[in-house]
């Protein structure tokens, strides 16, 4: 039984393979054609899954290109699990090496951003940190506190304006020329039930990735300051607390 299923799956996902042995058709017509239809339905379903996970990406490249991209991806990375919620997490690295998309070097990061939104959407529920917790903390403890990050939080650091590009290609927005072309670090959070995408303030990428890695506040501030002279701690803290990026301090 396992063998039959295995052969069936492989034949489904690899277009050049012959149909599984022993396959017959109740009305006597050629089973190859019937199987080909099923095979195409499976791929069409997977393409639709990817399109619904990566709507901005599809809009950026256009539907015909997206279909070809998705098909090439499915060929190389067929689903390993019946649960498709995470399907497509290898898409960014695939796109980086995908020759026809070479002229869109920002595309992989936009896909990372969309994937992060999907993860945030399905992440565990947790109340974000109450900002007042910091207010009542003794001053001398501040440099040493560490933050627990919300399970829905993720960061995408990019050398392209990915938040701008994503926002312009999200539902109902109108794309226009991006000027100036600046690097943007994105953070995805879900403080309550809504997934949000933020453009990090200056130095925020360094600051928050250090905090997320478990560095104490004092160290993260120093690193951010030395990397980005425009780093503003109040702005970044206000962002962090307001966006519900963290859940607790230690």
């Amino acid at each position: 039984m396992l063998e039959i299923q295995d052969a069936f799956t492989r034949a489904l996902l690899e277009r050049d393979r012959p149909i599984p042995p022993g396959l017959t058709c109740s009305n006597g017509l050629r089973p190859e054609r019937r199987f080909a239809i099923h095979r195409d339905n499976v791929v069409a379903g997977l393409i639709a899954t990817l399109a619904s996970r990566f709507p901005a990406t599809q809009r950026i490249v256009g539907a015909p290109f997206f279909v070809v991209l998705a098909r090439a991806f499915i060929d190389r990375h067929p689903p390993r699990s019946p649960v498709l919620l995470e399907y497509g997490k290898d898409l960014p690295s695939f796109v980086e090496a995908f020759e026809p998309a070479r002229d869109l070097p920002y595309l992989a990061d936009v896909i990372r951003l969309e994937a992060a939104r999907g993860r945030a959407y399905h992440a565990a529920d947790m109340p974000p940190l109450d900002p007042q917790t910091l207010a009542v903390l003794p001053q001398e403890r501040l440099p040493f506190i560490r933050f627990d990050f919300h399970p829905a939080t993720s960061m995408i650091r990019s050398s392209h304006p990915i938040v701008t590009i994503w926002a312009m290609n999200a539902d109902g927005s109108k794309p226009k020329p991006v000027e100036p072309w600046l690097a943007e670090d994105a953070m995805v959070s879900r403080p309550t039930l809504n997934v949000r995408v933020h453009r990090l303030p200056s130095g925020g990428g360094t600051f928050l990735s250090l905090l997320a890695a478990g560095s104490p506040l004092g160290d993260a501030v120093e690193a951010a300051l030395s990397e980005s002279p425009n780093f503003n701690l109040s702005t970044n803290l206000a962002f962090m607390l307001g966006a519900g990026v963290t859940t607790a301090i230690r």
Binding site: R15, D40, V43, A44, I47, Q58, R59, I60, V61, G62, A63, P64, F65, F66, V67, V68, R71, A72, E99, P100, A101, D103, L104, P105, Y106, L107, H160, I165, M168, N169, P175, K176, P177, V178, E179, W181
Partner: peptide, 23 residues
């Protein structure tokens, strides 16, 4: 879409983002 595959490598992304300045 099976037929499409044959010429897929000639395709160029041509969506709404043509207005985006590529870097």
């Amino acid at each position: 879409t099976v037929d499409y595959q044959a010429n897929s490598w000639k395709l160029v992304p041509a969506g709404t983002c043509v207005t985006i300045v590529t870097p």
